[in-house]
Design a protein around this nucleic acid. Structure first.
Lengths: 226, 226
DNA sequence: CTTCATCTGTAGCATTTGCCACAGTTTTGT
DNA sequence: ACAAAACTGTGGCAAATGCTACAGATGAAG
């Protein structure tokens, strides 16, 4: 458990003492169970120890929107989503998973006991929320692109940079990717098909490989003669 | 200056001592000037004391995308955007503005001097980045809506909840709103026009007022008779 | 091995959207 | 007061997108 980034730099021994010190509660959830609904509890932070989960909200019209996906080391809680907004927020387990609950105050405030690693803990916490913020910015950058083509190309180029040269395979299923990019799945498939036909990329399933210069613009086909 | 949320709970006197302690630098910028480009400096945090600014990035294809807007009390720096990604990030002043620069380490780490308000400071910092994260989530929630109509209605409904009953006027110009919603400006105007013709809302300029039940769906006009 | 569920891939069509281009209005700056 | 810039508002048109439906592929569970 001490490998978690929020507990970085804190020994196992120290950790167990601290966990007791700030009333940490560990629970196990089954696939499909609701882990947390954002309504009552104020500053409760959930730390996903193992498994996968996701946060979605029930919209005005009853439809639900996927907001975030969580893997090991991820944090969630009303602090990280919006406090206002009359919607219902629900964290649900995608697989069986273990969750640790703590209160923000207990982490950030110094405790009466001699646990002097609290400052290390708040540093870790800050780093994590910072990374989350970066991830959100990244997605926004993708979503503000107007066309499916641009969003896809943005995403793939970024993955390319991450995974190094040559072909690479993406983490999510194409269905998930479509949702992540905020486009219809079939539209995404269509765009992939078109890009392939243009020779801009090669792909099979989740495996992609990009060619040199990518055709970001399709519209504006003003290249007509005369 | 002590009214800023990052300096909440810290007296003016204490503050000036701390500012010296962690090498804070205050600068003034003119409208249109570049405040910071994200490239070299690692953990530098900018605190906007007065004025307005915005963060944008230069994309692969040379186009620029607006990422965030900043007002008083807002923080910016490479920590809050993405570190990777070969793009250029630039913070630019919209109006004349004053900025305070500090280093993350100097805030989060305890200093040799007797400044014991550092924990208060890190708490404030955490609250701020948390609010920023919430704002990003909110925008993502808007951007994942598929149609212009849904995005606009989402946004307006949210504003309605914020500003209370009756008519309300939005903070940005319609041009800015279009960019915020990630849609073409004329498309936004068109949708407003259509919604007005449907009686779903009334508006003049930035002033809106919504009617009872809103028509989220346009497509799927299976309501035809016979 | 078989069954069931999820995912990948394709296609047609109506709708929506982006992209101009232009005119009137408001705001800003000098 | 005047000029310049930014903003609001409208229209047409081609292109992009979402929606629906279906079929094969893949993978998980019994």
């Amino acid at each position: 458990m001490q490998h978690l980034s929020i507990f970085n730099g804190i020994s196992q021994e120290e950790l167990s003492r601290m966990l007791r010190c700030f009333h940490a509660v560990q629970k196990t959830f089954r696939r499909g169970q609701q882990i947390q609904t954002y309504s009552s509890s104020l500053k409760k932070i959930g730390i996903l120890l193992s498994g996968k989960a996701h946060l979605y909200c029930v919209d005005f019209d009853g439809s639900y929107t996927l907001l975030e996906r969580f893997g090991p080391d991820d944090l969630f809680g009303e602090m990280f989503s919006l406090p206002l907004w009359g919607l219902e927020y629900i964290v649900e387990a995608d697989t069986d998973c273990q969750v640790l609950f703590v209160l923000y105050e207990d982490i950030i405030k110094r405790c009466p006991n001699a646990c002097d690693h609290h400052s290390q803990l708040s540093d870790n916490l800050f780093q994590i929320i910072t990374r989350k913020s970066q991830a959100l910015s990244l997605r926004i950058n993708l979503l503000t692109a107007r066309t499916v083509r641009q969003r896809l190309l943005h995403y793939l180029t970024y993955q390319q940079k991450l995974k190094g040269e040559g072909s690479f395979s993406i983490d999510m299923s194409l269905t998930e990717l479509a949702e992540y990019l905020g486009v219809d799945r079939s539209s995404l498939m269509r765009e992939i098909r078109v890009l392939k036909s243009e020779g801009a990329l090669a792909s099979k399933g989740r495996l992609f490989s990009l060619s040199g210069n990518l055709p970001w613009q399709t519209r504006k086909k003003n290249g007509g003669s005369s």
